[in-house]
Design a protein around this nucleic acid. Sequence first.
DNA 1: AAGATACGTCAATATGGCTGACATAAATTT
DNA 2: AAATTTATGTCAGCCATATTGACGTATCTT
Lengths: 184, 184
Amino acid sequence: MADINFSTAAAQPDSPGTDVSGPGPRTGDLRWDIIELLFFAYRDFVGDADQELEAFGFGRAHHRVMHFVTRYPGLKVADLLDVLRITKQSLGRVLKQLLDEGYILQKTGSNDRRQRLLYATAKGEALVAKLAGLQTDRINRAVAGLDPAGVETVRAFLRAMIDRDDPDKVLETIFGGAAKKTRE
Amino acid sequence: MADINFSTAAAQPDSPGTDVSGPGPRTGDLRWDIIELLFFAYRDFVGDADQELEAFGFGRAHHRVMHFVTRYPGLKVADLLDVLRITKQSLGRVLKQLLDEGYILQKTGSNDRRQRLLYATAKGEALVAKLAGLQTDRINRAVAGLDPAGVETVRAFLRAMIDRDDPDKVLETIFGGAAKKTRE
DNA sequence: AAGATACGTCAATATGGCTGACATAAATTT
DNA sequence: AAATTTATGTCAGCCATATTGACGTATCTT
């Protein structure tokens, strides 16, 4: 699982932008509470799957790949790269392992034979379902105190947290094809 | 909604006989939607800070450390290790850099002189505030359509997603000291 | 035939985790 | 006082996952 965290960068001492004093930092209107709740919630959420994965010798990268391939059968390699936002070199390593160990299989596209369409095997599906089960248990516990409208509120919040301006194929599916596509 | 037009043609390939089926995986009761919404929401949420920090030459690890030190001044090194759930060796690298570059400073504990209490400098606080500002903007956009009760529902959901059975110091603070501490 | 596209791969590198071992200072226990 | 435990730092090395750039090959498009 991916990251538990907040930000990223490279190294540059004595940075040109050491100017932290831009328009004057906001102090009172920041949503510290939700920021931290998101951090801890996600940390524990992904933590569920992490333990399980260790037994299989897999990491978060493997989980992500298997998850989306299972959920969206016939996903192309390029689609997966969009969703995961990694490079094909990084994906390649993980994907090869999953193919070799029989969790995923490829089929040459029938329309376009250059494409390798990805499918989860029964073995892969079983593992993904197991991991999703752990996470579902946590979610069920978390929504136990909410009425149906409350659960819908949570969904609406999460959907609204997602960037909609450049959706990949999976997001288009999730948002029912209504996602605006800026460049088109 | 699971399998839309992801592939040009999706005939299920003959899956190998790799049957892992144990107790029979759950298929219909899994919260796929919320699992995926959490993935995308968190991906974009942390993405906000990622870009910003490149100019400063920092990574996610730096952000995490600065964030919690800023929010909880006087945090001990051991506390930070609990919160971040990393080893002191990993923390050491990042922390040293932040100390050297003047984003954080240490003070020897007055009660226990072995402790190094951590504080953010003005420089550190400003950077953390800047990053929190970006994330706050996203959160504000996400809750724009919710009434106050809806926002409270979101908070309740996130709180309930967090493990309470072995809280670190920061979590105890967040949960108002009411968190049960199993081992003590 | 030429070019673009989808994918694979090689090589080199960076970040951020990890373990184990060991050192030091200060607090606590005996 | 001596021994032990605690809080922290650090060295050395390993692993997983990410990066960029370059190149190869099959295939589709023009």
